[in-house]
């Protein structure tokens, strides 16, 4: 039965090609079989023969599943944010309003509100983490690309933290930052810089910085790999031409090499920013649901509002905001891909 189906599929495509290119010389794909074309033509009026219907079994089920469980869930979340569902009851899908969002806008005007603080921290984390990680990744990539010995080993070593789960990194770094027995303070004390020891994770001044540093440690290897691929795509002659043109090493990288890494930067930045928005598990493991105003970010606040305070509608509102932010991050990238015809 399947056999017959596949044959029908193949045949109708043959027909299309022969019909549209009937005047053209067929340069590839061989010679159209006139008998086959004639046979298919007889039934080509049927809707069932159209490419859309015939390819449906292949893209239909995945589209349905993704549509339901991803986009359906997103839509449902938006719907909930329009209700005023809170507490232990069931949501009432009757009065939809934007009260959640107007509350957020009000909160944004109040620098002491949780929502304002969380948004500020999220943006700070997003920007600082992305920029620092990209710079460090670029530096590592340039160093590893110098034709050093054990290049592959270095690459693996730098990339390895990326393979750890956020939970592991969070626990690992909370030990590192431990004020009394943590490696960082211990090292500072050993080299005689005891005055610089800090309670890294409790001092509000350093908390967010400590988180950004730990995340950077985990992700700079990824940025390095992306940049390394970009660097290795630049032919050697470009470096040599720049040198014979009289450029110093720094100027050569600044004017010839780095500008050619623009697409690497874009793709790495998009991934890093999306990760920054999803940094929930890292902060949750480090600080629990209440990281305090200096480190509170939207995703942790969302969890707190929804699952601890049972402000379901408000939590959904934050989720929607996060979704829009993620969309805002990848939209320019997708648009560029679309413009270049790669989408």
């Amino acid at each position: 039965m399947f056999d017959a189906f596949f044959r029908a599929l193949g045949r109708s495509r043959e027909t299309r090609e022969t019909e549209s290119h009937s005047d053209d010389v067929r340069t590839d794909g061989g010679v159209a079989d006139p008998a086959m074309a004639g046979e298919a033509e007889a039934s080509s009026s049927s809707v069932l023969d159209s490419e859309f219907v015939q390819s449906l079994p292949f893209w239909g089920p995945p589209a349905l599943l993704v549509g339901l469980f991803v986009y359906g869930a997103v839509a449902w979340n938006v719907l909930i944010s329009l209700t005023d569902w809170s507490g232990l009851g069931q949501p009432e899908y009757e009065n939809f309003d934007l009260s959640v969002y107007s509350q957020m806008l009000n909160d944004l005007l109040d620098p002491t509100s949780n929502f304002f603080v969380a948004t500020r921290n999220t943006v700070a984390l997003l920007v600082a983490f992305t920029v620092i990680t990209l710079l460090l990744g670029l530096l590592l990539a340039i160093l590893v690309d110098q034709g050093v010995r054990f290049e592959n080993t270095f690459r693996t070593i730098y990339l390895l933290p990326m393979s750890l789960s956020f939970v592991v990194t969070a626990i690992f770094w909370s030990w590192m930052y431990n004020p009394s027995i943590g490696l960082i303070n211990e090292t500072l004390r050993t080299v005689g810089l005891g005055a610089f020891t800090q309670a890294w994770l409790s001092n509000p001044q350093f908390k967010l910085g400590a988180v950004i540093f730990a995340l950077m440690w985990q992700f700079s290897g990824y940025a390095m790999i992306v940049y390394l691929a970009g660097l290795q795509a630049i032919p050697n002659e470009q470096y040599e031409a720049a040198r014979t043109d009289g450029a110093s090493t720094f100027r050569m990288y600044r004017r010839v090499v780095v500008p050619q890494l623009r697409s690497s930067t874009t793709s790495a930045a998009v991934v890093l920013m999306v990760f920054a928005l999803k940094a929930f598990d890292f902060l949750f493991v480090m600080f629990g649901p209440n990281p305090g105003p200096s480190t509170d970010i939207l995703s942790v606040m969302m969890f707190r509002e929804a699952f601890m305070s049972t402000n379901w509608a408000y939590g959904s509102g934050i989720a929607t905001v996060l979704f829009l932010m993620a969309l805002g991050v990848i939209a320019p990238y997708l648009y560029r891909q679309y413009q270049r015809g790669e989408l």
Partner: peptide, 20 residues
């Protein structure tokens, strides 16, 4: 001497034009 100190210009087989 480094290339930049030599006052020499080179044309490469692959041209090595800066694409950007």
């Amino acid at each position: 001497k480094r290339p930049k100190e030599r006052d020499i210009a080179m044309v490469f087989q692959s041209y090595a034009l800066y694409p950007h």
